[in-house]
Simulated assay, not measured.
Amino acid sequence: MAHYVIRVKGDLSPELTGVFPSLTADREPAQTVLHGELEDQSALAGVLNHLDTLGITIVEVVQVPPSS
């Protein structure tokens, strides 16, 4: 598993962020930051595809290195 941070444009509603139960949503001005553990690259691709299907603009995707 890897920890990812996905920054998207806009303030996503709890209904929208609820679609991604493995991710936590933090709202910032004009953006929402989704972050959490995803099983693999396929799971990440699934989240990104779902956001795209919903018409949500993805601003940034970062894989956070594991803490040692």
Rank of each mutant, 00 (worst) to 15 (best):
S42K: 13
T24A: 12
R7A: 03
V5P: 00
S68K: 08
L48H: 02
G55K: 05
A30T: 14
D52Y: 11
P14F: 03
L54F: 14
V62G: 08
H50R: 15
G46Q: 12
A30S: 13
L51M: 12
T17F: 07
E15F: 07
T24H: 12
V64F: 02
S22F: 07
L54N: 06
I58L: 14
P21L: 09
T17I: 09
E60D: 15
V64M: 03
S42M: 09
G55S: 08
V19M: 14
E28Y: 10
V33R: 07
I58R: 01
Q41A: 12
R7G: 01
A25G: 09
I58Q: 00
H35Y: 10
I56L: 03
P65L: 14
P65N: 08
P21S: 09
I6F: 10
G10D: 04
L54M: 14
A30K: 13
T53S: 10
L51H: 09
V33G: 05
L48R: 02
Q31C: 08
Y4V: 09
D11G: 06
S67I: 11
L16F: 07
Y4C: 03
I6M: 11
Q63G: 04
S67W: 04
T32N: 07
P29L: 10
A2N: 12
L44M: 01
P66S: 12
L12E: 04
E28G: 07
L16I: 15
P21N: 13
I6P: 01
D40C: 07
D40L: 05
T32H: 07
T17W: 05
E28L: 14
